[in-house]
Each structure stands twice: as structure tokens, then as C-alpha cells.
Design a protein around this nucleic acid. Structure first.
Length: 292
DNA sequence: CAAGTGCCTTTATC
DNA sequence: AGATAAAGGCACT
């Protein structure tokens, strides 16, 4: 058992962070959150300014939960108006974690046109079928499969995980990753635009999926993913920044054309600045949980 | 309860 | 070029 005491000004809320929909494999049982990262199961809980965890070291916890990020500063930088301030007030302490990029990529390829419970089921099925089992506290956990493991899988096997048309995209991505054609380290180091361009070459990855991977695993905090919920929020509260025709056209339907996605996402980046991704996540969570 | 709609969209085809 | 259809399957109403 390890303990990490947060600084007086280190704002952090574990429940918001793990419950906001950015990660798919954490489960809360009683007070504890159980997760598996790479091939290690660990559990963690929060008690005020203390984080208590088992089977992970402090450096890892700090890094994974982005505790090195000055959240106060980040939130200040995006506090542009009443709407975002209200969302921040509600979920203060929500941090964007640093997911494993490989798992993140596959997760968001699965997310295409799916809801969150559906995505969770896909990831869980993939892990059970192709990952390695780990016993922790007499319970079985499955690690997320490596690229090599998924590259070897047949389309039928992949489909049996409920992936549907996404199965072939996942296999392709796995093959590329296995051959070393996707360097997540390089993507992390390059600029948002460059990294996005590279991710867009992958089939099954459009602007939305690319933005999610960039924000949730590659430290591109300016990425502003626009899904159906964020689209609603933007049009509802920030419609004044778009012309009437655009707003009316986009609000009436439940999908976005590439240029419509771009307009909304670029607005978010311009309006909220270099930490726009944080604004996106607070707005998303607020719209889903509070407003809807 | 059944049936319809929608989902943290992308690709292929008009 | 720009719109539209097609692509799992589950959750929600």
C-alpha cells in the first residue's frame, strides 16, 4: 500500500477523472477503483488530499493522472465565460489522464458511432479474448492485447468481440503498429497538426478519433474533439460565433461532415486556447451528466 | 413490451 | 466537390 499526498493547491478528483468517459476500463468496487495498465493491475482510492494505491509506484501514479499539470492554471486559462465556468464548478478536479496510446487508439476506433457502454464492452471483449489474464485479489483481469496479438487475429475472431465493420480497421492498425509503422513516441514529440496528419492516414481514424487519441494519450491539450454532446453544447452556448445557416444546418442532424467538424473543433481551439481539450472534457461531462 | 432512434463517426459511393 | 448511404449492435425511450 502506498500513499501520495497532494499539495494544498493540487486540485484533483479521482471519481470525476475516471468517471468522465475518457477511459473505458476502470471499474469502481466500493471505495476502490480497479484498473489495468499495460500488464499491471492496480487499485486506487482518494481520501481528501491523499491518494492511496496498491501495486503501482508514485512516479507512475503522478504521470498517469497528470498530477504534474498545474490544473489551477489550466482551468484559469479556459475560464472564458459563464458556461465553461459552470461546468468547471461542477467537476473541478477532473484531469485528463495519460492513457497508453496503443490502447487509446484502438479504443477510439471502436468508439465510432457507438455509445460508451458499447465501447467498454468491445474493449473488454478484446482483452478477454486476446489479452493475458492476471489474478489480483482473487479476481481475473485481462491486459489489453499487444499489436502483435491483434495483428494475428482473424477478422472473424475480431468480429466476435462485437466490433462489426471496425474489425478490419483494428487489424490494419495492429499490423502497422507491430511493424513499427506507428511511433507513438514520435507522435508525442511532434506538433498537434503534424501528429494529427499522421494519425489520419490510419483507416478508421478521422478527425474525431485522431483528436481523442491526441488529447487522451499524446499530451496534445489543444485538441478539441467534437462528438454529438460537444456539438450540442457549442451550438447552444456559442452559436453566436457561427453564422445562422451553419448553426441551423448542423443542429438539425446527428452527424457531422468533415468541414463541419473542422469548423466546430477549430472554434474550440481558437476560443479556449492551448488547453482547449480540458474545456472540451468539462463541457462534455457537464452536458451528458447535468444538462441532459 | 415492441419498435424506433441514437450513439464521443468513417468510408465508399454517388 | 459535396452530399448521402452504409456499416454492428446495444442502450435507451
Amino acid at each position: 500500500m502506498e500513499r501520495l499526498r497532494l499539495g494544498v493547491s493540487a486540485i484533483f478528483n479521482l471519481d470525476y477523472t475516471l468517471g468522465c468517459g475518457q477511459v473505458f476500463r476502470w471499474e469502481k468496487a466500493g471505495e476502490w477503483w480497479y484498473g489495468i495498465i499495460k500488464d499491471r493491475v492496480f487499485k486506487i482510492r482518494q481520501n481528501g488530499r491523499d491518494l492511496i494505491f496498491e501495486n503501482a509506484d508514485k512516479a507512475f501514479v503522478k504521470r498517469y493522472f497528470s498530477l504534474d499539470v498545474n490544473l489551477r492554471e489550466v482551468l484559469l486559462s479556459i475560464s472564458k465565460d459563464y458556461h465553461i465556468k459552470r461546468a468547471i464548478q461542477h467537476f473541478k478536479g477532473l484531469r485528463i489522464v495519460r492513457q497508453d496510446p496503443w490502447e487509446c487508439l484502438i479504443s477510439y476506433i471502436c468508439a465510432t458511432n457507438k455509445n460508451i457502454p458499447g465501447i467498454k464492452r468491445n474493449i473488454e471483449a478484446l482483452s478477454q479474448k486476446f489479452g493475458e489474464s492476471k489474478i489480483f485479489e482473487r479476481k481475473v483481469f485481462y491486459s489489453f492485447p499487444t499489436p502483435a496479438k491483434l495483428a494475428k487475429a482473424s477478422l472473424t475472431e475480431l468480429r466476435s468481440c462485437g466490433l462489426g465493420f471496425r474489425a478490419k480497421y483494428i487489424r490494419e492498425a495492429a499490423r502497422k503498429a507491430m511493424q513499427g509503422n506507428i511511433s507513438f513516441e514520435d507522435l508525442r514529440k511532434t506538433s498537434y497538426e503534424e501528429a494529427r496528419k499522421k494519425l489520419l492516414h490510419l483507416r478508421g481514424v478521422g478527425y474525431k478519433v485522431a483528436d481523442c487519441v491526441l488529447l487522451f494519450s499524446l499530451e496534445k491539450l489543444e485538441a478539441f474533439p467534437v462528438d454529438i454532446w460537444v456539438k450540442r453544447t457549442i451550438l447552444k452556448h456559442y452559436g453566436i460565433h457561427f453564422d445562422k445557416g451553419f448553426s441551423e444546418k448542423v443542429s438539425g442532424k446527428n452527424s457531422l461532415l468533415p468541414n463541419e467538424y473542422k469548423a466546430l473543433s477549430e472554434f474550440g481551439r481558437r476560443y479556449f486556447g492551448k488547453n482547449a481539450g480540458y474545456a472540451q472534457e468539462y463541457l462534455f461531462h457537464y452536458e451528458r451528466l447535468v444538462r441532459h
